[in-house]
Design a protein around this nucleic acid. Structure first.
Lengths: 151, 151
DNA sequence: CATAATTAAATTGTGCACAATAGGATTTTG
DNA sequence: CAAAATCCTATTGTGCACAATTTAATTATG
């Protein structure tokens, strides 16, 4: 048989497995996040702010690998939801500082109580397996990023 | 310390690792696929057709977990690129059969020669490791799909 | 210190993703 | 066999992603 003719098969491809798993996560999160009124990308922005309140768009973007083209409209929607405020930095008016409102802070409890345990159950494997898989996927991402730098 | 207060940390989350790795794959594929004039989602549709030519929108959607809202415009763009044709099934006019053009078939060679080996190099780990990781990610996706069925 | 270069965010345009709905075609069933 | 239910695709609307450009602010430089 010809060498490597089956390398184009969908089921053999790691990239498709990852692409597909990302969508599956989205579908799993959606009904849970609906109760908080958030989408998954909005949720991870909230996570960034729950770790440290008051960050610039640039800082948030660096942690999530997202640019202002994605974040600007997303943050406006979070602001309209009453989750965050956006204020120009006094010292450097180029920067916009994003801060949690009281509602935004309170939503963290909702996430801890309702989202995290529910997702934990869905993944359906031990914590150790899960940690190892996560580390591998992060290594994969790092390898790709190193080979194809961005920003 | 309070139990599980750090479970909301971004770096600890498998979902974010997967979300992030999917974007990294996209960025890695983009410069390569640009030379074929394809996006990554278009590329995986082509992979489905390279495996078996002449499939309905429904069949393609089932393999990729994509609905007609995503596929209809994507397939029109592939048609405009000259990669595929779309024809109503004679026996059942509800169905649209998607077939590769000669150009679409020829593009498979380009993918085998230019895309597959280039990506293989980027991932940067042995084939066995890669296969195992892929199987784990697929298991993860399957677990999520089972817990949260769709369609 | 005025001009050039750089930086940060926003805007514009294209292309997914997906929910909800609509429009025909086919199948079921009363 | 006619009405109802089902099925397949397309359309509409919202929300990411990201490239490319724009605007305004800051910093560097001649």
């Amino acid at each position: 048989m010809k060498p490597h003719e089956n390398v184009l098969k969908l089921e053999q491809q790691l990239c498709f497995a990852v692409y597909s798993a990302a969508h599956a996560f989205n579908r799993a999160y959606k009904p849970l996040l609906d109760s908080l009124g958030l989408t998954y990308p909005q949720y991870i922005v909230m996570m960034v702010l729950w770790e440290r309140n008051g960050q610039t768009v640039k800082e948030i973007g660096a942690k999530l690998d997202l640019d202002s083209g994605t974040l600007s409209p997303l943050l406006k929607r979070l602001e309209k939801l009453g989750m965050i405020t956006r204020t120009r930095d006094e010292n450097d008016e180029r920067q916009v500082v994003v801060s949690l409102t009281e509602q935004g802070k309170a939503t963290r409890r909702q996430a801890l109580d309702k989202i995290v345990p529910a997702i934990g159950n869905l993944v359906g494997c031990g914590v150790d397996d899960l940690d190892e898989m996560r580390d591998r996927v992060i290594k994969l991402k790092t390898a790709l990023d190193t080979a194809v730098p961005h920003d």
